[in-house]
Design a protein around this nucleic acid. Sequence first.
DNA 1: GCCTGTACCGAGACTGGATCTCAGCAAAAG
DNA 2: CTTTTGCTGAGATCCAGTCTCGGTACAGGC
Lengths: 150, 150
Amino acid sequence: MQYHLGMADTQPLVAALDQAGYRLTETRRAVAELIAEREGHFTAADLVGEARDRRLGIGRATIFRALDLFADLNVLERLDLPTGEHAYVPCEPAHHHHVVCSRCGRTTEAQDHGLQVVVDDIARRTGFAIETHRLELYGICPACRATPAR
Amino acid sequence: MQYHLGMADTQPLVAALDQAGYRLTETRRAVAELIAEREGHFTAADLVGEARDRRLGIGRATIFRALDLFADLNVLERLDLPTGEHAYVPCEPAHHHHVVCSRCGRTTEAQDHGLQVVVDDIARRTGFAIETHRLELYGICPACRATPAR
DNA sequence: GCCTGTACCGAGACTGGATCTCAGCAAAAG
DNA sequence: CTTTTGCTGAGATCCAGTCTCGGTACAGGC
C-alpha cells in the first residue's frame, strides 16, 4: 500500500515512533505526512477530512490513535484555543510554550526565560506546590502584521 | 416561580448581568446560586445534574447559555483541564490566572507579577504582537499537602 | 524467503457534551 | 394593562472522541 504524498518533513515524527519502539506502518507514515503538510494548528477533524478527500482509506479511530501517540511522544501538542476548539501543533519534545497567531493560526515555540521566577513567586504566595504549568500566548504573527488587516 | 435556594453569594454574578443590561430572571438567579455554592471548579454537567436532582426545572440549554453569558462577562472562566475536561471557575473580572489543585480541584486566583516581562521578551524574540495570554498552573493546594496522599 | 505472534488497522456502533429550533412565557418599558 | 422583546424548556440534533471486534500486516526468528 502506497500513499503517494508530498515531501513535507515527517522525519521528527517518524523518528519519535521508531525510537520509542512503535511499528513504522504505512498508515502512521501517512498520518505523519498529513501533519507535516499543515501549517499552524489543525484539528483532528481536519486530518480526518483530508484523509477522506484523498481517499486514503484511513479510519477515524486510527487518526485519533496516531494523534494520541504523537502527543504521548511529545512531538505533538494539544492546544485548547480560546474558542474552545481542540487543536494540535507539531513541536519539539522539550518543555516550551506556544505562540499562536490569532489571524492565520500559525504557531511558534517560545522558551520561557524568566517564567520560573514567576511560577515560584505564585507558589510562595498561594502555598501550592506547583507541579506543571501551561502558558499560551495569542497575537499577530510577523507575516500577518506585514499585510493590512483583511 | 421561586427556587428556595441557599445563601451563597450570588451578588457578583447577578450584578454583572445587571450592569451589562441583561434581564434578571429567576432562572438566572438560580443558576447563579448553583454556581456560588460550588467550591473549586465544576463542569456544566455538574450543574445540570444538580438542577435535575433539585427538580428546579431548568433546561440543559439554559444552563449552557447562562455559563456562556457569565463567561462573556468575565465573572466565570472556562478552564481546560489537562485531562481534556472543560471546567468553570467563578472569578474576578480583572486579568489574572488560575492555580488548580490537581488532587481536590480547588482553584485560586494569582496575580502575574513579573509575567509581563516574560511576555514582552517572547514578543521581541518571536516578532509576534502579543494580544492576550493564558497561564494555568497545576499543583497541590495547602490543604491537600497537609493530609497524607490518599 | 517463509512463519508466527502481536501490534495495528478500518468500519461502524456508541457515548456524552454542546448546540439548535421553536413555540410559549415573562421581564422591562410605556 | 399592553406591548415588545428577551428569555426559557423540551427534545431533536450535531459532532468529537471512544470502543469493539474481526481482519491485516509488521518485525523478528528461522
